[in-house]
Design a protein around this nucleic acid. Sequence first.
DNA 1: GCCGTTTTCGGCCCGACTGTTTTCAGTCG
Length: 574
Amino acid sequence: MPINNNYIADVIQEYGDMLDLDGANPFKIRAYRQAARRIRSITRELAEMVEEGENLQQFSGIGEGIAEKIVEIVQKGKFHQLEEIKNKIPSGLLEVMSLEGLGPERVKKLYKELDIENIDDLERAINKGKIRELEGFGKKTEENIKKSIKQKEQQGNRLFYNRAEEYTQPLLEYMRKLESTNRLAVAGSYRRKKETVGDIDILATGKDSEVIMDHFVAYEDVEDIISKGDTKSSVHLRGGLQVDLRVVAEESYGAALNYFTGSQDHNIQTRHIAREKGLKLNEYGVFRESNQKSIAGETEDEVYQALGLPYIVPELRENRGEIEAARNNNLPQLIERKDLKGDLQMHSQYSDGGATIEEMAQAAQELGHEYIGITDHSQRVTIANGLDADELAKEIDEIDRINEKFDDFRIFKSVEVDILEDGSLDLPNSILKRLDLRVCCIHYKFNLPREKQMLRILRAMDNPYFNIFGHPTAREINKRPPIDVDMGKIMDAALDKGVYLELNSSPKRLDLNDIHCKMAKERGLKIVISTDAHNPSQLPNLRYGINQARRGWLESEDVLNTRSADKLLEMIKR
DNA sequence: GCCGTTTTCGGCCCGACTGTTTTCAGTCG
């Protein structure tokens, strides 16, 4: 594991969780967890900053103590306080604490009274009926813990955004059928368009909350009901996805939507602002601290206005500078789907696509595209029927023929050419130069150590026919970690050489991620948003890329394929 | 442990639901 920001955040977070089990000061625990979250959103590599002796305390949430620990993590991969606490408390307890319904107090009790150190121990104790005998526990709690274990085994990872959509849309339709519901919206990370979704938060207003709740838990896909009250109910759907429904009064709708959309970090900041202004912000509205009088709540606009801020779109609500930007009236005008004029990565039957070039072109035209790039695989990717130079030459000729039929649409002759281990490209320049543009990607040797991986990529970028670095970290969400690279250096090199980076819109890749997009924007490096579609039905996936781009603060200006075909070719020329 | 247009000390977001209890602790988001 490379010592990147995510690793550092993991270690800091683990320490916070261990402190929780140790019964430490809750605010200290929170400080570590907040620091971990903060670290994940920093767009520079902390390891590098440490090596260069830079001050880490410039980041809010990182003070003297945690800065010292980060230095130790960078140097040794761990820090001594964490090792000490691990000697005292079995780290298997963290896994137990991650179960739904089990927090630090109960886990501690299980450890002290029943010697439970991990989930296996816990399961054995449940089977012996030991849990129900503990003071403060009971039969029902024992059953719930049993369910939680099963739940964790089943669900495992967070859902891809597009899969979450498949669960959410029918449920919304079902809820709309009920006459008692008035307003209905999805909040949470789903509304913020995160690449994966842990659970679904639905917000409703309506005449009779009891009727709405009854209707909700009666949904045919509900597997079990976790809780049910007047204002909040939670269920598991078949397949394990948790859905929470909240019913609020009309006058609180905006405040509730804002509150339940989060993120938590964003909410903490907005509440701070409220307090500064002598106001109180909660899910019911904005209130004057002096007389508890409500001054806003029905719409989100109103809530932000009461805080003296312009409206902030959900995708930006991650406490990554949006509050400051809002205060300075400097929020980005985020890119929208309609800004994109074309799609620069897709496959045809020449390699592993399911449709002909003409079929892809036609479908793209119907979506309003002005151009596409056909990027079939190169020879190295044998499993995808990658093309050699002769086969690619044939494809080039065919695209020329097809292009003659169009007046106001253009197919770029392109390729998804592999970056080989030594940094050479998988096809000779003699054929690459016949193309309009080239997307260069890594499909093998993901595990090279950072130095070698960097050398490979930077060397490849030296080739004048390297235009776009496709799915740059090669990660697959929930499956394969990103390759170990210094993204800042890659971006600097890309700027220097006139290379662009791709945001791959496949819901399983979404590569670059949001933080990398913001990094690119801060450097002035433009991004290409492509689908990597393998058949026409995947062409609308562009919207997932747009979601990610918006989370990464990108504006139309920051994205290459918002340009016309001619302008694009001009810009891509090295 | 972090932070500061009241502060270097004394705060730190806050309300709902469940289960096991007879008034509340624990957990969650």
